[in-house]
Amino acid sequence: MTDENVEYVHTSYLDILRTRGMQGLQKNMPLWKFKLSEEEYEALKQTLRIHTSDLAKYGEEAALCYAEWWRRDYKGNIPSKEDVAMGIGIHSSYANELYKAAREALQKHGYTFLHSLKGTLYFRTLLNQGGLPINYITNSGNMGNYSRFLKELVSELSLINIDWNEVDSSIIQQFNCISYLGKAFKNENIYDVSMQIAHAVIVGEKDILPYDDTDASLAELTKSLETAYSRAKAQRKTRPLSLHWKLRTMENGKGYLYVNMDVVKDISSDSIPGLNIMTCYSFDVFVAGTLVGKYVRKDNVRDE
């Protein structure tokens, strides 16, 4: 891209490229990696606000603003095109034009879009470019629960065979760890970015983390996830709630069923499928109406 074939009104975008020694968007480079300053983000938003009547020509600016809105300005719950537009300072009636401009810009630069059984996920891909919505997670006071969720997610994923090229992030809804997430965190975009984090930790590739790992607090998060992964892989695979039974038949046709439950003092909640660790404090195990075991939660905090 050169100055000769770009109108002067793209100044803010061109300045961003020049300061980073780039000619344009690089295929599949997550847009959060531009690490835009507040001034650069505001300049892009101002460009879009001035040119609402011709947004189709400002796709790169729109794509960058989509990513930055998710990273900086997302406030929770299920995001919408209108939320992004209004967050940028554009009337919601221009939401579709803004979305189409951003989508077409990524397509033009060869970006790969997310897919599901429902089809191509353009909107989720645009938000996904912003990586971890770090401002919302830290400012909402939910970083503790979210980090616990991530550690349990890494642990659960490490114990199953998974094809990272085909995995659907909605699989998270089947895991016990989802009980750590508040209602506002239970949406597909949060699931997507969480799966990216788990993927990076499990395969040992920090380059695909959706956040800046050089930041001290985020580096600490990565380290805790790596510890959780190491612990999960080293943990001996057991069936702590398994039963041993024997059926003894008598000559008169009657039978006696003998049941013995493995006695384990400490059981990880990870090994009990379907257990909601945030609401379930105890439960009893019965076999044929006979109490054979009792579970009582001892602690839900792990010492790193």
Rank of each mutant, 00 (worst) to 15 (best):
T279M: 02
R231P: 01
T19M: 12
K246C: 08
N28L: 06
N142R: 13
G59H: 02
Q107V: 14
S80L: 02
D192N: 13
E4S: 11
E4F: 11
N28F: 07
L218K: 03
I190Y: 02
T11K: 15
L98H: 01
L48Q: 06
G76R: 01
L159P: 03
Y258S: 14
Y180P: 01
A288S: 15
I277H: 05
S158V: 04
G89W: 09
E4L: 14
F283H: 13
N161T: 14
V287K: 07
M261V: 09
N260P: 03
G87K: 06
M1E: 09
V296L: 04
D3H: 08
K100I: 11
P30Q: 12
I208E: 02
Y13T: 14
A62W: 07
R20D: 12
D15N: 15
E39S: 11
E304L: 08
Q235V: 03
E97I: 00
E251T: 12
F34E: 02
D213Q: 08
P240S: 05
A198W: 00
A184N: 13
G289F: 13
Y122H: 12
E39N: 11
R20K: 15
H109P: 01
L17M: 15
E152H: 08
K35L: 08
K254V: 10
G110S: 11
S53Y: 07
K100R: 15
K100G: 01
T19Q: 15
A219N: 04
R18Y: 08
D207E: 13
L247C: 03
L181T: 01
G76M: 00
M22N: 06
E226G: 08
V203A: 06
L218Q: 03
G130D: 02
E82H: 04
D262Y: 00
D3L: 13
R248F: 02
G253V: 07
T125I: 07
S53R: 11
E68Q: 11
S282R: 15
G87Q: 06
G21M: 06
Y211N: 05
R231C: 01
Y99T: 03
D212A: 03
H10A: 09
Q173R: 15
Y8R: 14
E220P: 00
K246E: 14
L117V: 11
Y74G: 03
T11H: 13
I160D: 00
D163Y: 07
I134D: 00
I162Q: 03
M1Y: 06
E60I: 15
N28S: 13
R231L: 05
N300V: 04
S217V: 12
K186C: 12
E68K: 04
